[in-house]
Design a protein around this nucleic acid. Structure first.
Lengths: 137, 137
DNA sequence: TCCTACACTAGACACTGTCTAAGTCAAGCA
DNA sequence: TGCTTGACTTAGACAGTGTCTAGTGTAGGA
């Protein structure tokens, strides 16, 4: 975590209490939080932090590549602090639980040239859906 | 299209002008419309159709498996009438254009057992992202 | 034709996210 | 250390998408 703060400072980020709190929340063991969940946890540590600041800070962290936006359902975006290792997501279609997973092979290679329609493809997102053990039992 | 209406009638759907119009809109050559786009087109044919009816009808068509919900960005859901042939999506990250694509292999097979965490996996969504030829030029 | 359960409408409401104007403060500099 | 400045934060309005409800309408069977 202090790593993250150091990296951000090194990139010219002005270090404020609000940004520190958001980074701390993301570094907790609750991954894949929504923006409002991040806000709720941040408010515990810093009651006057505003929703707009949380949204701004999350957006900045995303554009800096420190966290990843995930949208496994059509509800709120979720934020994944595990940005430094490529991975995909496995989602329970009942309870919405999310796990990071690491498929074999290169997902980009599955799309033949004839199906690329001239696009320059840079990224692939794979979402596996199913029922988790708790919901199945 | 009359096929679709027949299938729906066969499943006990009460056939109303509103449902017919929504089905007709989806059957047009504009695929991947948002709910509000469907509503806008439906209003042209049936001015008094309400937004709630369009949302309800789309939801029913999805649960009947006649259309597919697609969420390639975090804006509105889009509806894909191409539900009867498995496919994935290729999205332009600049203009948002969407193409149906057909990757090789079985995307489910890319997740090893050790990465399934006891989930019973039933579905995989793959979204390829890149820049389309028009945006690249 | 009549009846009734299902469908539709208008509009309020909820959730998520964005924007703005005004105030605050981190950090560089004297 | 104290000043200055522009980046940052705040509160709250606003926008887009989707859901829900109460009252009304109507498709389709008897």
């Amino acid at each position: 975590m202090s790593d993250l703060l150091e990296r951000l400072r090194g990139r010219g980020w002005r270090m404020t209490a609000q940004r520190r709190v958001v980074a701390e929340v993301l570094d907790g063991d609750h991954t894949h939080l929504t923006a409002d969940e991040v806000h709720a946890r941040a408010v515990v540590k810093l009651p006057e932090i505003s929703r707009a600041t949380v949204y701004n800070t999350l957006g900045e962290l995303v554009s800096l590549g420190e966290i990843i936006e995930v949208s496994t359902d059509r509800r709120a975006k979720r934020y994944d602090p595990n940005a430094h290792r490529p991975h995909q997501h496995l989602v329970c279609s009942r309870c919405g639980a999310i796990r990071d997973v690491h498929p074999t092979g290169n997902p980009l290679a599955t799309l033949p040239d004839s199906e690329r329609f001239g696009f320059t493809i840079s990224d692939v997102e794979v979402t596996y859906r199913g029922v988790c053990p708790s919901c199945a039992s």
